[in-house]
């Protein structure tokens, strides 16, 4: 991983061939929480605790993990919706960690997000054309009649009727609303879209339609996705590369095919053991003991040792680094 760090110096140059679209380097985000109103002790939720990850152009990188493992926070860090406490974010070879003001606004043209909840992600007081066309308006790309026409074309592209442009969000179903959210995300022709659990609020029958729409758009426009999900079936369907997160760190990173065929990290193995196998056979079920520990009090050493079925005494002492095991496969466990 470290070998692929993009140097800060070449920010004006075109990214080299094969260079990642997005690079995250050692990202850290802690949210301070105060225990009680009267005490001054402060704790912090270590939502993202040192994550490095690359998204190649036109590919889909999946982020999978239990709720509270920091995947949503990482997605929002990647497109600068929240600011990291440490680490670097590089987009198309250029460091964007501290961009602000007009530069940050212009950066928004290249990276967008699709949200999990199709209800809270659309402003109930705005017409659909104003929702999907907001980017055009604020960047001076189109307004008035031109905006309306572009909005109608865009809506048809995501499989909605053109007259949806004049309606309000409450007139649509969850799946249709998610199409509107996707239309908004692609309205500025971004190279990167963070899909934050884009189908987990939808019915299974609608999930497939939305996933196929996302894939079609990727094929047509070459969009790179950072695809956040807790649903392994969705990840397997969508992703080229999968990163497994546990308590704010990546514990395994591998091409999707390899990961699903042969998971290495004990956490990944336990997650996958819950999935039915492609051939109809069955893996041995690995049932993890206990709950995921609080991200406020992260266990010392390997974060997973409290629930690991392979845990050894040494696991409590030193946190294992994410190391390359074989080509493209990274694991943070010395015993895997």
């Amino acid at each position: 991983m470290t070998a692929r760090i993009v140097a800060d110096g070449n920010r004006r140059e075109e990214p080299a061939q094969g260079a990642p679209l997005l690079s995250l380097r050692g990202l850290v985000k802690h949210f301070p929480v105060r225990r009680s109103f009267l005490s001054n002790e402060t704790f912090s939720v270590k939502a993202v605790d040192g994550v490095s990850l690359d998204v190649p152009p036109g590919k889909t990188v999946g982020l999978v993990g239990e709720s509270g493992c920091g995947k949503t926070t990482l997605g929002r860090l990647a497109i600068r919706l929240i600011d990291p406490d440490a680490g670097g974010i590089f987009f198309e070879g250029r460091e964007i960690t501290t961009l602000a003001g007009e530069e940050l606004r212009r950066l928004r043209l290249g990276m967008q997000i699709v949200f999990q909840d199709p209800y809270s992600s659309l402003n109930p007081r705005m017409r659909i054309r104003d929702i999907v066309g907001e980017g055009w308006l604020v960047h001076g790309i189109a307004k008035g009649k031109a905006l309306r026409e572009r909005a109608e074309r865009l809506l048809m592209r995501v499989g909605l009727p053109a007259d949806a442009a004049d309606k309000y969000p409450h007139e649509f179903s969850g799946g249709q609303r998610q199409r509107i959210g996707i239309a908004r995300a692609i309205s500025l022709s971004p190279r990167l879209v963070v899909a934050d659990e884009p189908v987990s609020a939808l019915d299974v029958s609608v999930q497939a339609q939305i996933l196929n729409l996302l894939r079609d758009l990727q094929d047509e426009d070459g969009i790179g996705y950072l695809f956040v999900s807790h649903d392994l079936r969705v990840i397997r369907h969508m992703c080229d590369i999968v990163a497994v997160m546990y308590l704010g760190v990546i514990v395994e990173l591998a091409p999707a095919a390899d990961l699903f065929r042969e998971p290495l990290h004990p956490y990944t193995r336990s997650l996958l053991s819950a999935l039915p196998m492609a051939g109809g056979g069955r893996r041995e079920q690995i049932v993890l003991a206990g709950e995921i520990p609080s991200p406020i009090h992260v266990p010392p050493g390997c974060r997973f040792h409290t629930r690991c079925f392979m845990s050894k005494p040494s696991c409590r002492e030193q946190e294992p680094a994410l190391e390359e095991r074989c080509a493209g496969r990274f694991v943070a466990c010395p015993y895997a």
Binding site: R108, E134, V138
Partner: peptide, 8 residues
């Protein structure tokens, strides 16, 4: 958040 991501 979406509006901010759009550049508003």
């Amino acid at each position: 958040a979406a509006a901010r991501a759009q550049g508003a």
